[in-house]
Computed example of a mutant assay.
Amino acid sequence: MHVFILDTRNYREFCAEHFDGRFLEHIPEIAFKYDGSVERTAHIIADHGFEVDWKLWEADYAKCGPCSPGSSCH
């Protein structure tokens, strides 16, 4: 999936067809926030019938902690 996102023109066309134009921007310069967004993105991909390499995605979202004590923002 990551390589496909880097192919911006084809990725945008695919998202326009399958997700009403919504797509995930690739911005490698930003730091990970560990705010649950990586996990939510993986689930959205899976929910739309695409195969998810869970070990790859979990490597990033496993570091995520609760957003505030006693709660979960996921």
Rank of each mutant, 00 (worst) to 15 (best):
A46F: 15
D60I: 02
C15T: 05
F50R: 14
L6C: 09
F23C: 10
G21Q: 12
W57K: 07
C67R: 08
I44Y: 07
D60M: 05
P69A: 00
T8Q: 12
H43L: 15
D20F: 09
D60H: 02
Y34L: 02
H26P: 02
D53E: 14
L24T: 13
D60S: 07
R9E: 15
F4H: 03
H26A: 12
F23D: 04
G70D: 04
H43C: 07
L24R: 14
E13I: 08
R12V: 11
I44V: 08
D35A: 07
T41Y: 09
I27R: 13
H18W: 14
F4M: 02
R40W: 08
P69Y: 00
D60Y: 03
N10W: 03
T41L: 12
G70M: 00
H43S: 05
F23H: 15
E17V: 09
R12A: 08
E58C: 01
V52P: 07
S72F: 00
P69E: 07
E25I: 01
S72C: 03
A62V: 03
Y61A: 02
H26F: 11
I45C: 05
L6E: 12
R40P: 01
V52G: 08
F14S: 12
G21A: 06
D35M: 01
L24H: 10
I27C: 11
M1F: 14
K63P: 00
V52L: 11
Y34W: 06
T41R: 05
A16E: 15
H74Y: 01
T41C: 12
T41M: 09
H74G: 04
R22E: 09
A16L: 09
I27N: 12
F4S: 00
P69K: 05
F23P: 01
Y61S: 04
I45V: 14
S37H: 07
I5W: 05
S71P: 01
K63W: 00
D35E: 10
Y34V: 01
E25M: 03
G36W: 05
A62R: 10
Y61R: 03
G49F: 03
L6H: 05
E29F: 10
G70H: 04
G36M: 08
L24V: 14
F14W: 12
F4E: 06
C64W: 01
S37G: 04
C64D: 09
D20L: 06
S71H: 11
K55P: 08
A16K: 15
K33R: 15
C67G: 08
E25K: 12
S72D: 13
S68W: 01
E25G: 08
A31M: 08
H48R: 15
I5N: 06
T41I: 10
W54I: 05
G21E: 04
I27F: 12
G65W: 01
A46H: 13
V3S: 08
M1W: 14
T41A: 15
Y61E: 02
F50L: 13
W54V: 06
K55A: 14
F50T: 01
F19H: 11
